[in-house]
Structures are given as structure tokens and as C-alpha cells.
Nucleic acid binder design. Structure first.
Length: 591
RNA sequence: GGGCGCGUAGCUCAGUCCGGAAAGAGCGUCGGACUUCUAAUCCGACGGUCGUGGGUUCAAAUCCCAUCGCGCCCGCCA
């Protein structure tokens, strides 16, 4: 409804300015501060003052007089306050918001008839997922949810780097060493924890062994890479044995978030179908291609990139970026738009890919990146190869354990006698624990660097998931108390008199609810799910004020008012449930 | 050295793209509110040279220039 109101205000303002023969290029529309009653404001009077030869407040009055509020649907009144024009919402604005909000899908936007692929995580299948990379699936999943909710037809892809030197080293190590060669037991009873020990052993060997031993190992590693490049089926099988096993474990871990994928796209696919070779030959034909030091390179200076992009090694094998180019052209062939979520350490690479795709004749406007900064430990970087870092599994376990403790200590002083059983406690522990981890990460701008600290990551106070989740539980509590089976999708009638929602707390809550579709629209446009998190916080504040001020089920509440408030609670439930679902945070019906 | 990002209350962060009303939250500290639809809640107090210096503007946390601090990148790795 907010979007409709904004359109209405824009048109009214533009009409008034035109009528007064003022320029209409900048309407100065803005959202007013919290203590101002309006939902939308304009500071256009400042800009017109010199042209009008009158002080801003007088211009504001003049513009306000030129608009007839009676002709507007969602605006009841235009009030000036000094130089500002304030647009106050009408009863229809509130009534239509309430009506729209009783739909369970409230906030979702109309189908855009646009297919879009979100690639995220794409961590190399070398071992357990660690916290340093955990931002990727959490942000990526939220971006995908957000775009889905905003009307795009979204596919979620994990690009599997199964063709690089890392996997050749891993395969060689896996085939060369035995359990007896490994120093330690697996940290966890799952395949990627088992196999990563071979990878680490292999890397240590290459660092420490004698020159002759390393040379022999390198020859074997090189033959694996050559085999992959040549499309040799046997080599592919050997590498796949490692890749598929490790990947299955990583999938299990990511599934706990949960982050699910529609497709795992393997890099080798673009070698086997010859599209990488095709890219290479097309690149060689470009004017910007140079053959230097026996390797084919691309000069990207015209894009402001000093560094040459090597796309074919002197031994004739392709490099990661070369295969990624084929991968991206495949995306362009199959989807209308593409979004990639990746760490800021890949930023230069992303620019190179973008520039090269353009040279190859692609429309790179269809491709966008979401970049995030690394999560580091206080003592430094996390590394799978060196085995430093905190595993995502451990973080999630710890979060659930702490959440369970919270639930149990709160059990004693619960007022409500809804007797939570063991299953409930376990459910709440999972919802709150994992929700807190996700919310903590998704609510911040991804460009900000994060240093991982247990206490901070697992703080359930603060502006955290439980705070917002609690609001959802409160909504469900009221609805269930009123006899609705929320779990079965039973909600109160939408046909109520919204005019009865007249207190400031109710109006403020409705105003916030009204903004959800606009927030989704803008967040999707900017690819910034943290805007949704910010919104959930504001929404929770408003709901808690309503909860405090406006009893719904108390005996002294008039039946009609009770019905209206119940509808408002149902609308609130949908609003917060949908916003949380975008963030990938569970919405508990009790806590 | 060059490129990019970040710098807002003691701490963690919104707000910056698109300049407008007296800079907003949470945590922490201090003081209050449960016989009431769940207190994982709420109310109040304290707390700010928006890194620094210049500039543009009627108006700058927001735009421009410079500068300092921190991070990332600058492989025939991925």
C-alpha cells in the first residue's frame, strides 16, 4: 500500500508544481522522521524558494494549497510544517493495508516472468565448511529467497570447482596415502572430515618432502590435470570419487542452515562439452589477446584493469577463469539474469570475468555480484588446507546447545501453561540457535569485516533473531488463545472494520506493515537482504508497543474491536513470518 | 607502491547509493514494570568532534578533494 501511496503523492505533487509553473524534475520526496505524523514528506519548497522569490515555508503552503486532498485515496490531508509538506494517511490506506495483509503471502511481489540464477557458496570441495566462508551460504540463501519473494523465477546453483590444481592434489593424496600415514582421527564422523586429512597430509608432504619426492608427486598431479583437460574419462572418474564424497558431506552441513541448491554445476562439465575450448579460440581471435611468455593472455587495460588475464597456460591447459567464462556463457544461455555471491578476495577476478564476457559479445548487464568480506578469527585467517578455523558444524552445534539451555532455564518461570514437551524444546533450540547465527550474519552489510568471536556470534540478547522470533510466537499465542489452529493455517476473517484500529500504536503498526512490499522491492533491487533484517527489527518494536498498549482478548474489549485486533495480529503474523522466511530464519509458533 | 572496501555512543551495528526536520537501535551501566493475550518483553536515565582537514550547497554522516587507520586484492592458484 505504501507503493500506491507514494505513486499517488508523486502524481499529486507533480501536478501541483506544474500548475504553479515550477520545475517538476525533483519532487524532494522523503520519509519523515519518526516523530512526525505523516508517512511521506517533501522538502521541495527549499529548492523552489529562490525561483519563487519567497521563503520555503511560504512556498510549501502554496504547493499544499494547490493539491486537493479530497481527490486522493490514500492521503487524507496535506499539512505543512515549516518548509516541509507532510502527507497523512487516510482511513482507506489503513483499511487496504489490513485487507492486503491478511493474505498469507503478503509482501510477495507479482511474478516478473524473469528467470534468474543465484550462484553462491561454491566452496572448493576440499573439506568441512568453516565459518570463514559461512557468510556465503547465509547471504546467498537470503538473496535467493529475497529475489524469489520479489517475483523472480530463481534457481540456486553451487559451482563445483572440480578441475583445478587443488583437486588434482587431493586426488593424488587420496590415492597415495593410507590411513596409517595420517596423524589424527577425523574431527567428526562424516566423510568430508575423514577425507580432508588426506588433503592436509598431501599439502604437508609437498611442503616438506625431498626435492625428488616432490618432483615425482608433481608429475602425478600434473598428469591428473592433463587428463582432465583432455577429457579423459578415467581421470574424471578418479577425481570424481574424491569430489563427490567430500561434496556430499558439505551438502549435509549446509543443509543444516538450511541452504539447499537446485543444481551443483561442475566445472569439468565445461571442459567435457568443449565449451572451454570454444572460449579459448574465440579469445585468441580478439584484438586484445596477446601471446606472451608462451601463454595466451588478454589485455584488459581498456577496462581499467592493469593485470593481464592469462587464459591458456604454456602447457596448453586452461585456467579457472577460462572455465568460468564458459560457465557464465552457459548461464546467459539458460537464464535471463545471473547473480553471484562471492568473497571480496574474488573481486578483481569478477571484474576480469565481466570485462572478458563483454569482449566476447555478452550483455553483462545481466550479471551482478554480491560481495562480502571475510570472517576472520581473532588470531587470523581460517584455512582448510592448514586446518585452522572453526567448522560451521561446531558453530551450529554450540548455538543449538546454548539455545537449549536458554529454553530450559526459562521453562520454570513460564506463565503460559502450554506444557512444552521434549520435542518442543528441541524444536525451539534448533530454531533459535540456528536462527541467531543466520540473523547475526545476514543483518549486517556484507562489506563490513567480521571477526568471529563465540560470545558475540551466540548472543541471544542484542538485536538478534530471538527478539524477532518472539514477536511471531506472541502473534501465534494470541491467535491460538482465540481458538485458531495456526499450524493448520487457520486465521481470522479479513472482513473487519479497520477504522476501529485507531490508537497510535495500532496505526503505527499498520504503517509499518504497509511498507513491507516496498522494502522487499528495494532490497531485491539492491540485492541487500540486510534491509529486510532492519525492517524486522522496526516491525518488532512496533508490534511490541501494540502488544503492550492494546489488549486483544481481554474481557473488556468490545467484540468488534477484538475482531479488528485479531485481524491485525494475523496480518502481523504473516508480515513477520514472511520477512523471517526471506532471511532463512525459522518462525517459531511458541518459544 | 597501485586498485577496491571499511571507519557513526565504551562495544556491536542501522542510516550513506538517491544531501533535508533535534544523528537512531541493541549490548553494557544505573533506575523502574510480571495475580494480565508468553518478561527471550517493556519503560526511563546516562552516553556522539559521524576518523581528520578542506571544499560544494540555503542545507553534508550522506557529494567532491586531500589525509590517517584497518581489511582485501595485485599467481601460467582457485
Amino acid at each position: 500500500m505504501f507503493l500506491s501511496l507514494r505513486t499517488e503523492v508523486e502524481e499529486a505533487l507533480e501536478g501541483a508544481l506544474a500548475e504553479l509553473e515550477y520545475p517538476t524534475d525533483d519532487l524532494g520526496i522523503e520519509e519523515p522522521p519518526e516523530d512526525v505524523e505523516s508517512v511521506l514528506a517533501s522538502s521541495v519548497a527549499f529548492r523552489l524558494a529562490s525561483e519563487a522569490g519567497a521563503p520555503p515555508p511560504r512556498v510549501a503552503g502554496q504547493v499544499a494549497d494547490a493539491i486537493d486532498a479530497d481527490e486522493l485515496t490514500y492521503v487524507s490531508e496535506i499539512r505543512t510544517q515549516g518548509p516541509y509538506l507532510n502527507f497523512l494517511p487516510s482511513d482507506a490506506y489503513f483499511a487496504e493495508t489490513l485487507a492486503a495483509g491478511t493474505d498469507e503471502t503478503y509482501g510477495s511481489l507479482a511474478d516478473r516472468d524473469t528467470s534468474l540464477v543465484v550462484e553462491h557458496t561454491s566452496a572448493n570441495p576440499t573439506g568441512p565448511v568453516h565459518v570463514g566462508r559461512a557468510r556465503n551460504p547465509i547471504i546467498g540463501d537470503a538473496v535467493a529467497n529475497l529475489l524469489d519473494f520479489a517475483g523472480y523465477d530463481v534457481s540456486r546453483h553451487y559451482y563445483v570447482n572440480d578441475a583445478g590444481r587443488q583437486m588434482a592434489v587431493f586426488t593424488w593424496a587420496y590415492e597415495t596415502f593410507d590411513e596409517a600415514d595420517l596423524e589424527a582421527e577425523p574431527e567428526r564422523d562424516r566423510i568430508e572430515y575423514d577425507l580432508v586429512r588426506y588433503y592436509r597430509k598431501g599439502n604437508r608432504f609437498l611442503e616438506n618432502a625431498s626435492e625428488a619426492e616432490v618432483e615425482a608427486a608433481e608429475a602425478e598431479i600434473d598428469s591428473i590435470m592433463q587428463g582432465l583437460e583432455a577429457g579423459d574419462e578415467e581421470t574424471y572418474e578418479r577425481v570424481s570419487e574424491v569430489v563427490d564424497q567430500v561434496l556430499s558431506g558439505m551438502k549435509t552441513c549446509l543443509g543444516r542452515l538450511p541452504a539447499e541448491f537446485d543444481e551443483f554445476v561442475k566445472e569439468t562439465r565445461f571442459m567435457r562439452d568443449d565449451s572451454t575450448d570454444d572460449v579459448v579460440s574465440r579469445l585468441e581471435d580478439l584484438d586484445d589477446a596477446v601471446y606472451e611468455e608462451e601463454a595466451w593472455q588478454l589485455n584488459l587495460e581498456s577496462f581499467g584493469i592493469e593485470k593481464n588475464l592469462v587464459f591458456l597456460r604454456s602447457d596448453g591447459t586452461s585456467l579457472y577463469p577460462t572455465r568460468d567464462l564458459a560457465h557464465h556463457e552457459w548461464k546467459f544461455d539458460n537464464y535471463d539474469q545471473a547473480v553471484t555471491v562471492l568473497g571480496e578476495d574474488h573481486k578483481l577476478q569478477a571484474r576480469q570475468i565481466d570485462a572478458t564476457l563483454e569482449l566476447l559479445g555478452n550483455d553483462t548487464d545481466k550479471l551482478e555480484q554480491v560481495l562480502y568480506s571475510y570472517v576472520n578469527l581473532p588470531e587470523g585467517k581460517m584455512s582448510t588446507r592448514r586446518g585452522t578455523g572453526v567448522d560451521l558444524d561446531d558453530l551450529l552445534d554450540e548455538a543449538i546447545d546454548r539455545a537449549r539451555e536458554e529454553v530450559e532455564t526459562r521453562l520454570d518461570d513460564r506463565i503460559r501453561d502450554d506444557d512444552l514437551d521434549e520435542d518442543d524444546i528441541e524444536r525451539i533450540a534448533h530454531q533459535v540457535g540456528i536462527g541467531a547465527v543466520r540473523y547475526d550474519i545476514v543483518s549486517k552489510q556484507p562489506t563490513k569485516a567480521i571477526t568471529f568471536e563465540w560470545e558475540r556470534a551466540l548472543d541471544f540478547e542484542a538485536q538478534s533473531a530471538p527478539y524477532v522470533q518472539y514477536v511471531h510466537a506472541r502473534c501465534c499465542g494470541i491467535l491460538e488463545e482465540a481458538g485458531f489452529d495456526v499450524e493448520a493455517g487457520e486465521f481470522p476473517e479479513a472482513d473487519v472494520d479497520a477504522d476501529l484500529l485507531e490508537t497510535p500504536a495500532e496505526r503505527a503498526l499498520l504503517e509499518t506493515i504497509a511498507r513491507l512490499p516496498a522494502v522487499v522491492d528495494e532490497a531485491a533491487d539492491d540485492l541487500e537482504p540486510h534491509q529486510i533484517a532492519t525492517y524486522t527489527r522496526e516491525f518488532a518494536d512496533r508490534f511490541n508497543a501494540f502488544y503492550r498498549e492494546c489488549p486483544v482478548l481481554a474481557d473488556d474489549v468490545d467484540p468488534d474491536r477484538r475482531e479488528a485486533r485479531l485481524a491485525l495480529v494475523a496480518t502481523s503474523k504473516h508480515t513477520v513470518a514472511n520477512a523471517l522466511s526471506i532471511l532463512g530464519v525459522a518462525a517459531p509458533r511458541s518459544m
